[in-house]
């Protein structure tokens, strides 16, 4: 198997896996926000621990 093929397959499998990971994470966020009736930015960021640095 060539190096290109190995890197390519890693990108395909890793990329597809990342898409599914983001889907499941996002679905989870939607469910929590709607279940707990969270509303504004601070409330949701604190509850879901989404804050990055001081953003």
């Amino acid at each position: 198997m060539t190096t290109n093929k190995i890197i390519g397959l890693a990108i395909i499998i890793g990329g597809y896996g990342l898409i599914w990971f983001l889907l499941l994470k996002s679905k989870n966020i939607i469910e929590i926000i709607n279940k707990k009736e969270l509303k504004n930015l601070d409330e949701i960021e604190d509850e879901l621990d989404l804050k990055v640095g001081d953003n």
Partner: peptide, 20 residues
């Protein structure tokens, strides 16, 4: 929108890994 209206809006989803 996050900076100016983030605490006025009623979000149903908030993206993770912001601002990356």
């Amino acid at each position: 929108i996050r900076k100016e209206q983030g605490n006025e809006l009623n979000y149903g989803y908030l993206m993770p890994y912001f601002p990356f």
